[in-house]
């Protein structure tokens, strides 16, 4: 079945405490060289049947209304994943 992937990230101007914690943990396991880590969310919406324009529109609406909070997050992509 086709899947629509929605990616949500914290807004650039919002400090990302979780990303910061991950970033400071990397050197502890010997991984160096990354200036910054930001942590977001990935949602996989599985579609029964074909991905029509209506289905994509519904996914975009879900992304804007429930999956993200526009005060602190951006929807960076709503895309059909190739099987």
């Amino acid at each position: 079945m086709p899947t629509i992937v929605v990616d949500v990230m914290p807004k650039p101007e919002i400090l990302d405490p979780q990303g910061k914690a991950v970033s400071s943990a990397l050197p502890r396991i010997g991984i160096e060289g990354f200036a910054q880590v930001r942590q977001g969310k990935r949602f996989e919406l599985t579609v029964e049947g074909e991905v029509t324009e209506e289905v994509l529109a519904a996914a975009r609406k879900a992304a804007e209304t429930l999956l993200s909070n526009p005060v602190i997050e951006d929807v960076v992509s709503v895309a059909v994943e190739e099987v």
């Binding site: 914290p10 400090l15 405490p17 979780q18 909070n69 005060v71």
Partner: peptide, 17 residues
């Protein structure tokens, strides 16, 4: 109340985690 837009802004994780 912020999620339902009765009050502005939002809450994120404490800065010290």
């Amino acid at each position: 109340l912020t999620e339902v837009h009765l009050l502005p802004g939002s809450m994120i994780k404490n800065d010290h985690l």
